[in-house]
């Protein structure tokens, strides 16, 4: 099975993605498939300051709990409140409506992330 890995995003080995253009963060299609049906997502609040690789939140399926890590340092500027009532969006549209947070970040941090080719190789 091959998973979508959009080229315009950067990735972490722990399967988070970040859109360099917007600072939007989510988890990859591969990650949501590994997790199975997502039933709960715990996210930070707008205004929280995060360091790169800090714990960003938690995503839960029926039988597993996964920590989420911040791909970059910065302040949380938006949180996807829709996930409170529809955690399934993470499964249905991991790169779309299932995004998690937006972070105001410093682009230097992106050097420590993977590009789509590297990430594709990791999950192959």
């Amino acid at each position: 099975m091959s998973f979508d890995v959009p080229d315009d995003l950067q990735y972490l080995e722990s399967h988070e993605w970040i859109d360099p253009a917007t600072g939007r963060v989510g988890i990859s299609e591969f990650a949501q498939d590994e997790l199975g049906d997502v039933v709960f997502v715990e996210l930070p609040s707008v205004g929280d300051a995060l360091d790169q690789h800090d714990e960003l939140g938690v995503v839960e399926s029926i039988k597993a709990v996964s920590d989420l890590y911040a791909p970059v340092s910065g302040e949380v500027t938006a949180v996807n409140d829709a996930l409170t009532n529809e955690p399934e969006l993470v499964n249905e549209a991991p790169f779309g409506d299932g995004w998690l947070v937006e972070i105001d970040f410093d682009s230097d941090d992106l050097e420590a992330t993977l590009d789509s080719d590297d990430y594709r190789a990791q999950i192959a």
């Binding site: 709960f40 839960e60 399926s61 029926i62 709990v65």
Partner: peptide
């Protein structure tokens, strides 16, 4: 909601 419990979340 078993992810709260020890058999899944262990020390947390």
């Amino acid at each position: 909601l078993q992810t709260r419990e020890q058999h899944i979340r262990k020390e947390r």
